[in-house]
Amino acid sequence: MILLVEQLLNGLQLGITLFLMSAGLTLVFGIMQVINLAHGSFYMIGAYVGATVAAATGSFILALAGALGAAGVAGMAVEILVLRQLYKRDHLDQVLATFGLIFFFNEMTRIIWGKQPLFMDIPTWLKGNIELLPGLIYPVYRLAVIVVGAVVALLLWYLFSRTRLGMQIRAGASNRDMVSALGVNIKLLYTLVFGLGTLLAGLAGVMAGPIFAVESGMGESILILTFVVIVIGGIGSVRGAVVGALLVGLVDTLGRAFLPTLFRTFLSSSYADSVGASLASMSIYIVMAAVLIWKPRGLFPSHH
């Protein structure tokens, strides 16, 4: 029972990270109709800059600010320099050009920071564990990640449903010709949305810093999970991103934690471990396939 709650929290934490990644990306897909493979690069940039600033200043708050700024600015620069040329192109061109961006960013981090992974310390005021329930001891830092993610999700919800900018973005996701007909400065809106998306990716990256190793190429594994989230949730839907992210986070975490044990009940233990582990790493893709058979356009398809 305690174990289950602990794993649920871990799943929630992965889900939150995935939400931060997919919220921005799904908007870029939905509004600009651009498939961007390089989104994981901004996650990586956030993590690297965060780790560097933290190491230099010892301040986690400064690290956060630096990471968000770097990811946001890099995002807007990439939008202006490269992505803009791709809006009118077909998906294939977008895939290839953003693939080129990944090559560039991955190698760039290797040039600047070297091949060795960086490690980022948990700030002292978030170190230690807390007893959530009798017997359930959970790291404060991971809890903080969940809280930050939840706060950001609320802020996004407020931005989208209560502000003018949010209305324009939402309108753009479902009908972009309409938005430009209304005289909104589309170019600026696109740059801002893109920058917002990469900033969130940077936030996810810096928060992941103390949990995973910060290394070149770290963006790609999270990127693919993000794609799974978006496929499940439906392109262009922030609500879909929330549901998809939590689903993927929970299925992945719980699968890894419990599938091997489950298999051990009716298979020999070494065999069960390897089958269970294999299946666990494939579980989210199986969920994705199931969703696909049921709803080919995702759980919350936006209307085009």
Binding site: L96, G100, F103, F104, E107, M108, R110, I111
Partner: peptide, 11 residues
């Protein structure tokens, strides 16, 4: 670091 050149060439 050839990838740093290959990326932009690709773009």
């Amino acid at each position: 670091h050839w990838m740093v050149y290959l990326g932009p060439i690709l773009i």
